[in-house]
Design a protein around this nucleic acid. Sequence first.
DNA 1: GAATTAATTTTCAAAAATGAAAATTAATTC
DNA 2: GAATTAATTTTCATTTTTGAAAATTAATTC
Lengths: 213, 213
Amino acid sequence: MARPSVKAERTEEILDAFERCVARLGVEGTTLERIAEESGLRRSLLRYHIGNRSEMVKALADRYIKSSRAEACKMLATMPESETSAPLLDYLFINIDEDQRRKILVAEALVSGADLYPEIKHRMNEWYSNFVMILCRIINVDYPDADASAQREVAWGLISLVFNVQMMAALGGGELVIRDSRRAAERLLLSLKVNDPKPEAERSFEGTAELIA
Amino acid sequence: MARPSVKAERTEEILDAFERCVARLGVEGTTLERIAEESGLRRSLLRYHIGNRSEMVKALADRYIKSSRAEACKMLATMPESETSAPLLDYLFINIDEDQRRKILVAEALVSGADLYPEIKHRMNEWYSNFVMILCRIINVDYPDADASAQREVAWGLISLVFNVQMMAALGGGELVIRDSRRAAERLLLSLKVNDPKPEAERSFEGTAELIA
DNA sequence: GAATTAATTTTCAAAAATGAAAATTAATTC
DNA sequence: GAATTAATTTTCATTTTTGAAAATTAATTC
């Protein structure tokens, strides 16, 4: 009855370009004009299809959460029944293509930029919790006897390593850092075996009392 | 012979304000006008005392590197002769005041923003290497038999944890993440004891050959 | 208090970024 | 090919940010 809509495709194209910019320049470093250039579209089309700047950022965060969650579930599905540690480490550190690397940098940028966009804060918190949960589920396969908090500590450590290795890779010297990160992650996973059930030694560095929630 | 110079003091004030802004808003999210407001000075004074925007960023990075190096050395000096692990973890995760927290966020912002300011890239690389070295020296006190690469892996893991805990703390839910981070760091340190000298188990998750530099 | 130099304020211009809407073009149906 | 609706282009105004220099004020020495 009229010209067919391409809003869905354009929206994807625009957000793809936005992601590429954010990975390099951060949320605040990315201007609408730059996104337009990156996507090969006019700036007015960003506005027409998505909206103004803050709506653009919101749309980016929304899409990111959704696709990231889907990706994590897919990853979970590809995990073997046992011996998940090696495939997990490969997934997190080795089998990283340009796309996944960008996704990680975008997550960091969104978290860092959350202060300026309060709506994102909650979304990124949710995203992070979900990621930890997925990791714990995988960790649980190889280390079912480790208690939940121990698994969470290790999961958090893995995430920290993944984030930082990509951030530092931007400074150059990528290969060495990747190798070290993977090894450190390996250490964290193995700590679940060695220290289970928790011996006295593990508590030897315990902090002061007010830290215990 | 003339009005006394206050350039040194003003410069410090301005860069202090700049740091406060960068910790919250990132390098690109910080405008000169905002720095002026934060410091209580006119924008023209930033230019007069330091320079234009890129010179401001360069000055910030320079001062950051210097003071950070001094701080790290001071920390190293306060370490005991033995049993350094607990004080190290306290230093990295527990005894963090607003100032130190800000410093960490600034480091992250500078690393993330290095793409836009090539001059910083090298400086931040240097900074990072120095930090790893200091940590290795401390780690070496308690784990002198662990080989250098193992110490470096653990040091890198500690840095990753420190960075991420502060980044995520901005999203809220700080206490739990701090506790988990400290515990994860503890696991990394302990892995140096358990797996030394490296048993076969430690190599069980070794990646493919092309990773060996 | 005149000279001197530094600091500060004021002011203006230019560029960059965003918001918004009018005008035009394109693809579909009937 | 006329009507219809979506997409695209064009255009303009406004705000923000930055660069730069002139004008003024302040503290010191002689």
